[in-house]
Computed example of a mutant assay.
Amino acid sequence: MARIGLYTELELEKAAEVFREEFLELRPSEDLVYLFFIRRKKILTNRHEHFRIEVQNLGHFHRRFWESEYGTMSITTNVICVTVDLQNNEARFGPIGNIAMLPQGMGLGTVLMGQAIKWLLVNHPKTSIREGRLSGSDTPSEEKRKRRHSFYEGFGFSVVYTNKEEPEGRFFAECVERLTPKQGKGSFVDVESFASEAGKTKSQNADLIEQVSKLRERRRQLGSGPIDFRGVA
């Protein structure tokens, strides 16, 4: 794990505190609807401000029938984070060396990157951006390379390849103000509204309705603290 000043990215992540939680709905097709849990975390130190938005896949509706995924939060998958060096006025996107989204091709990365850029525009609009590395192993095909290229350029980053055969490269921008916070195809929703609208009968969505009940109780127990879905069955 790369060191950022006096801290590693992992150390900042461990110390970061949750400040907002919500749900995200993605509809890749008319018959398929995914529901994700979104958690936003941040920490401010003498030198850094670290922001992290991470996602947990709860499950999906297919033709109004719910199927749970029981996913968990990950350090490197379904995560976008930004670390701002307050002394050098420089922001760095991460996780360092690895931005991976699952399921692929649904626009999840677009939603998370858009939210991270919005946070930067509100809190550090004049900050310069440290270039990030693009690994050749992440794009084994020409199609995936073009998709990744389009992803970064769509937010206002410049993309340069140092090895076109791999292809390895870097993405960068002059400052935060040059970036565009795309909304993406997702919509933030209340989980109970999602459950009632996505299915018409209780029997079709019994598993989700049971989850909603447990989540409401867990929210009451934790107050404003984070929700741990690992115990939700």
Rank of each mutant, 00 (worst) to 15 (best):
L120A: 07
E143G: 06
G107V: 12
N46T: 12
D85N: 15
I75K: 08
R133T: 14
F19V: 05
I129T: 08
P181R: 08
F188P: 04
T201C: 07
L12P: 01
P125S: 07
E131T: 09
N123R: 11
E22C: 12
F229P: 00
H50Q: 03
F19C: 06
I4E: 08
N88T: 07
R3E: 13
E9V: 07
A206P: 06
G225Y: 03
I4P: 00
Y70L: 11
F229R: 00
G223C: 06
D190L: 07
G184M: 11
A195E: 10
R170K: 15
E131P: 12
I38C: 09
F194K: 00
V33H: 00
E168P: 01
S158P: 00
R220N: 14
H62R: 15
R92C: 05
M113W: 05
R178L: 02
K202V: 15
T77S: 08
E192N: 08
Y152K: 04
Y70G: 04
V55S: 14
E90I: 07
I227D: 04
K126C: 08
N57A: 07
T72H: 13
M73K: 11
A100N: 13
S213N: 12
E69W: 03
R47T: 12
D85M: 07
A198C: 14
S224D: 14
R92V: 09
S135Y: 13
H48R: 05
K214T: 05
N98I: 12
L12E: 03
I209D: 09
G114V: 04
P167R: 13
Q56T: 12
V33C: 01
R3P: 01
P28F: 03
G71F: 08
G107A: 12
I227A: 02
K118G: 11
G186P: 04
D138R: 12
M106C: 11
R178H: 11
F37T: 01
S187Q: 15
T127L: 03
A206C: 08
D207L: 15
V122G: 02
I4M: 11
F172P: 00
P103A: 05
G136V: 10
G156C: 10
E153D: 05
E30L: 08
A198Y: 03
Y161S: 11
R219H: 05
E174W: 05
V159W: 10
L112R: 02
E17M: 13
M113N: 03
E11I: 03
L102E: 14
E192Q: 11
V79M: 05
K202F: 14
S150D: 15
P167T: 09
L12K: 00
A195P: 01
D228I: 06
